[in-house]
Structure formats: C-alpha cells, structure tokens
C-alpha cells in the first residue's frame, strides 16, 4: 500500500518537477515533433491558439498515462510509465520552445507595453528552454525596470527553477525597482532561489537531468550560501520589507517561517542529537522518544495512505 503511494507520489512530483527540470532535448530541434505553421504572420493570438491546441492533446496523453499508472500492478510497469511520461514532457517542451521562439520574435523595443506584458508573461510561465528564458529575463529588465507596474513579471521571474539570467534580473529589480513592493518581492525571490537550490542538495560538478552544465553549476554555487548568510538575508528582508505582500502572507511572515525552518534543519543534521518527542501513542498513552536511549531507533514518519 505504501509502496504504491510512492510511485503515485513520484508521478505527482513529475507533474510539478518536469516542466522545470526536463528540457534536455529542447534545443535539439529534431524533426520528430512537427511544427504546424498556419498561414499569415504570427500574432500573439495565433500562437496562443496553436499552443492551446497541442496543449490539449498533451493533457489528454498525460491523463491517459496517469490512468495507466493507477492501474499498473508491477513496479517495472510503473517505471516504464514514468519513462514514457518523461519522454512526453520532453516532446511537449520542445514544442513549447518552438512556439516560444516565434513568440519572442514578436517583441522588440517598440512593442507596446500591454502586448509586451502578454508575451513576456506567457514566455515566463511556459518556456523552459534556457536560452529563451535568458533572453526573456533580459528583455523584462529592459522593458520594465523603470515601470511601477512591473510586479507581475517580477513575480514570474522568481517562480520556477533559478538560473543566472533570472537572478541577475531580480538583483536589478531589487536595487532599482520603482516601488517597495517590487524591490522586496525581487529580493525575497533571490533568497527563495537560494533556499530552493539548497533543497536540491546538488554536488559539485553534477549536471542535473535536463539542465545545462552552466545552470547546474550556478545552482550549486547558490546552494553554497551559508546558513548564516541566508538567515541574514531573510532578517534583513523582514526588517525592511516586512509589510509587503508575498505569496499568501507578507514578507515578514514568510521570512520568519523560513528562518525557523532553516534553524530546525540545522538542528536535525546527521551527527546532531535528535530532539525529544513526548506525546500520546495511538492508544492515548504518553511516552517519550528518549525512553528508547540505549537502543538503535528507526524513527518512521508514516501514514496509512
């Protein structure tokens, strides 16, 4: 029962993780996935139409795979379905990348702000191809750094997997954004990116599946920020931008939670003494983890799902 749960979870994790992590074949531009060009020059609307058509096809394929996963009985079969899922995501990202390039070709310095916002928003939300993401981030800076309505695109820069171009853009918004909200959100996103990079737990020189060596190295570099430094960043943010709205709360609140979580994680390292637990067991009888000193203990956070 629990093992089944793991594979379901693995699939669920892929839903979230693959769009950001799998883009290995994005730049391959192989002929396998055909581009269907429509007549006339591209417009935002025509590209969106093309995108939503193949997006619907892929969504159907994904739900077919999910259904097969739910019905799969053998581990091998599940792994095979996971594999198919990843391939599907790769193909999907290749198609998204192709649309992304044509989308990007629609904007230049003269593009009106409403049109630019639509296009950049779509690019930031959908494209995983690193070179397009890089160009997009630079264009966002050029177009929005001196604008007071930059918050939406700044939020999007901070979403997804961190990469150098996006963090550089966020640093600029953090320094010279025109409102407190923009600056706070940008700086908070940088702290969050470091937190994310540390969560991945990358080793030096390891290239993450689907990412370029440069971005993997950059993530490693981010992850090397010391705990004190990161806690310092959050404290600073809470002090200067504490009241600014961030996610479901404020920067002050989110930063406070992060500081607490970082401190707990530091206490729970291998080699550290485990904190004691005291409380009722399933039958309501109170006991303590430290009652078991003198024994090797396997502490299992579990649930019967």
């Amino acid at each position: 029962m629990k093992r089944f749960c793991w594979f379901t979870l693995a699939l669920a994790a892929l839903w979230v993780a693959t769009p950001t992590c799998v883009s290995a074949q994005d730049t391959g531009g192989d002929g396998a996935s055909e581009e269907v060009r429509q007549d006339g020059p591209d417009t935002f609307d025509s590209l969106m139409k093309e995108f939503s058509e193949f997006n619907a096809d892929f969504a159907k394929s994904r739900s077919d795979l999910s259904r097969r996963m739910a019905a799969a009985k053998e581990n091998e079969e599940r792994q095979g379905i996971n594999q198919e899922f990843m391939e599907l995501q790769n193909t999907f990202q290749t198609r998204v990348g192709q649309i992304g390039e044509r989308m990007f070709a629609l904007i230049n310095d003269e593009t009106e702000i409403d049109e630019a916002t639509k296009i950049l928003t779509w690019l930031l939300q959908n494209v995983r191809d690193e070179s397009i993401q890089e160009q997009t981030a630079k264009f966002v800076v050029a177009k929005f750094l001196n604008r007071s309505d930059a918050l939406g695109v700044v939020r999007l820069l901070g979403a997804g997997l961190p990469m150098a171009a996006k963090i550089d853009a966020l640093k600029l918004f953090g320094e010279s954004g025109t409102t407190e909200e923009i600056r706070g959100t940008a700086l908070m996103s940088i702290a969050e990116a470091i937190n994310t990079a540390q969560g991945i737990g990358l080793e030096k020189g390891v290239v993450l599946s689907g990412l370029s060596p440069e971005t993997s190295a950059y993530l490693y570099e981010l992850s090397q920020t010391t705990t004190d430094e990161l806690v310092g960043m959050y404290q600073d943010l809470a002090e200067k931008y504490g009241e600014v709205t961030f996610r479901n709360g404020t920067i002050g609140k989110v930063a406070g939670q992060k500081i607490k979580a970082i401190e707990i994680a530091a206490k729970l390292k291998i080699g550290a003494e485990a904190p004691d637990i005291e409380g009722p067991d399933i039958d309501g009888e109170v006991f303590k983890l430290s009652d078991y000193r003198g024994k090797v203990v396997m502490l299992d956070f579990w649930g019967d799902w």
């Binding site: 629990k2 979870l9 979580a261 707990i264 994680a265 729970l268 390292k269 291998i270 080699g271 550290a272 003494e273 485990a274 904190p275 004691d276 637990i277 409380g279 983890l289 430290s290 000193r293 003198g294 024994k295 090797v296 203990v297 396997m298 502490l299 299992d300 956070f301 579990w302 649930g303 799902w305």
Partner: peptide, 26 residues
Amino acid sequence: VISENWAIKGWPTIFVLDEKGVIRWQ
C-alpha cells in the same frame, strides 16, 4: 506539531538514531 518540529517535507521520512539518540541517517 511533531512533523513541524522535525521539518518533515515528505512522507514517509525515516531517521535512524544510535543508542545515544544521535541522528545517523535520514
């Protein structure tokens, strides 16, 4: 509250403690 104090992000999570209560694996 226990999983919050132990910063548990995924289930199941396992810790192996030695006889002194020191975390040796997670």
